[in-house]
Amino acid sequence: MNDPILTKRFIRRNELRKLIPVADTTIYELERAGNFPKRFNLTARCVVWDLEEIEEWIAERRAALTKKVSPPDVRQRKTRPVRRDT
């Protein structure tokens, strides 16, 4: 019987940076805000992320970017209303 924890794959920072090419501080800020999977320590000097969680995060980001968003109705602006040329 396979133990699910043993079949998981964890990645270190250098592999994470290949998947998500952003600065370390951006990753720290996203983690702190709860918008990125949390890292954890395997040892006192080895920090890893769960690859499955990272892949899910990437898929969520991709889905959010591909959503069709309707443009705002500019006629409802309170400042700089749209001029009607008749």
Rank of each mutant, 00 (worst) to 15 (best):
M1Q: 04
M1A: 07
N2A: 15
D3T: 08
P4S: 06
P4R: 07
I5Y: 12
L6T: 12
T7P: 00
T7Q: 14
T7G: 06
K8E: 15
K8F: 01
K8Y: 00
K8N: 10
K8I: 07
I11T: 01
R13K: 10
R13F: 13
E15A: 07
E15F: 08
L16I: 03
L16G: 02
K18R: 11
K18T: 09
L19V: 06
L19C: 02
I20F: 08
P21E: 05
A23G: 14
D24G: 03
T26I: 05
T26S: 11
Y28L: 09
Y28V: 09
Y28F: 12
L30H: 09
E31Y: 04
E31Q: 14
R32E: 13
R32I: 03
R32V: 06
R32P: 04
G34C: 06
P37M: 04
K38Y: 01
K38L: 07
F40G: 01
F40M: 01
F40Q: 04
N41R: 10
N41V: 00
N41K: 13
N41D: 04
L42E: 01
L42W: 02
T43G: 00
T43K: 03
C46T: 15
V47G: 01
V48D: 00
V48W: 01
V48G: 02
V48M: 03
W49Y: 06
W49H: 04
D50V: 09
D50N: 12
L51H: 02
L51V: 11
L51G: 01
E52H: 12
E53S: 15
I54Q: 04
I54N: 05
E55D: 15
E55I: 13
E55C: 14
W57Y: 15
A59K: 15
E60M: 10
R62D: 14
R62L: 10
R62A: 12
A63V: 05
A63D: 14
A63P: 00
A64T: 05
A64N: 06
T66N: 07
K68W: 05
V69A: 08
V69R: 13
P71F: 13
P71M: 12
P72F: 13
P72E: 09
D73T: 04
D73S: 07
R75E: 15
R75W: 15
R77W: 01
R77H: 10
R77E: 04
K78D: 07
K78I: 11
T79M: 06
T79S: 08
T79V: 12
R80E: 14
R80G: 13
P81L: 03
R84F: 12
D85W: 11
T86N: 11
